[in-house]
């Protein structure tokens, strides 16, 4: 489908604060991290957020609903919403994860190449342009989102229910990026 062979590298993530130690974690933290005798490997990201287990559990459930709920907006397009938000917020780690998921689901490495090499200005093909423009404005300057940008999504065939999914997938990365990018940084995978 796409002539591009552009590849985004997988990255790891390292926190700026000391994450929760599984060996000394509270019952509530262990439950939040889903640690069991057969599963004691927990990512640094989860262990960092497990300092506040209550918010971690609630947000993870909401995140999974938004990114993986059945029906509605195509999963690839939710990943594109996530990628655009992550590009705006310069969350290198989130961008790499969701750029790769978008390519896996859509085969459109040319879109990812455009975003990585030239940024969010485009030009992209019309439907992708409408999605990028809307998610970019929502992420960067929410006060500038207007009905024209939503009308463009409708004109390119998105239903209102699909647009509700897109709003949530871009918005939840306004959340995720504000954790991942401020609480730690990406590292090469080999570094671990």
């Amino acid at each position: 489908m796409s002539a591009s062979r552009f590849k985004v590298k997988a990255l790891a993530w390292a926190p700026y604060i000391e994450p929760v130690d599984v060996a000394t974690a509270t019952e509530e933290q262990l439950a939040a991290m889903q640690v069991t005798p057969s599963n004691t490997k927990v990512s640094p990201y989860v262990r960092t957020l497990a300092h506040d287990p209550e918010s971690y559990v609630a947000r993870t459930k909401l995140f999974n609903a938004i990114m993986y709920a059945k029906g509605g907006l195509d999963r690839a397009e939710r990943e594109l919403g996530a990628l655009v938000a992550s590009a705006v917020n310069r969350c290198v780690y989130c961008a790499s994860v969701h750029a790769r998921r978008y390519v896996e689901l859509s085969g459109r490495s040319n879109v990812v190449e455009e975003i990585y090499v030239r940024g969010l200005d485009g030009p992209f093909e019309p439907k992708i342009q409408a999605i990028v423009d809307f998610c970019r404005t929502l992420s960067q300057t929410p006060s500038h989102v207007g009905r024209d940008q939503v009308q463009a999504l409708r004109d390119h065939g998105l239903s209102k229910a699909e647009i509700v999914d897109l709003i949530h997938s871009a918005a939840i990365f306004g959340w995720a990026n504000r954790l991942m990018h401020t609480l730690g940084h990406s590292t090469p995978v080999d570094d671990r």
Binding site: L49, V164, I172, G174, W175, L179, L183
Partner: peptide, 23 residues
């Protein structure tokens, strides 16, 4: 972490409202 989650939540909520209002 609690502060970071609060900040991120309000930013999320505001964007959901902005998007739904335009829709």
């Amino acid at each position: 972490i609690a502060l970071s989650e609060l900040i991120a939540f309000v930013n999320f909520e505001a964007r959901v409202i902005v998007g739904l209002e335009a829709l």
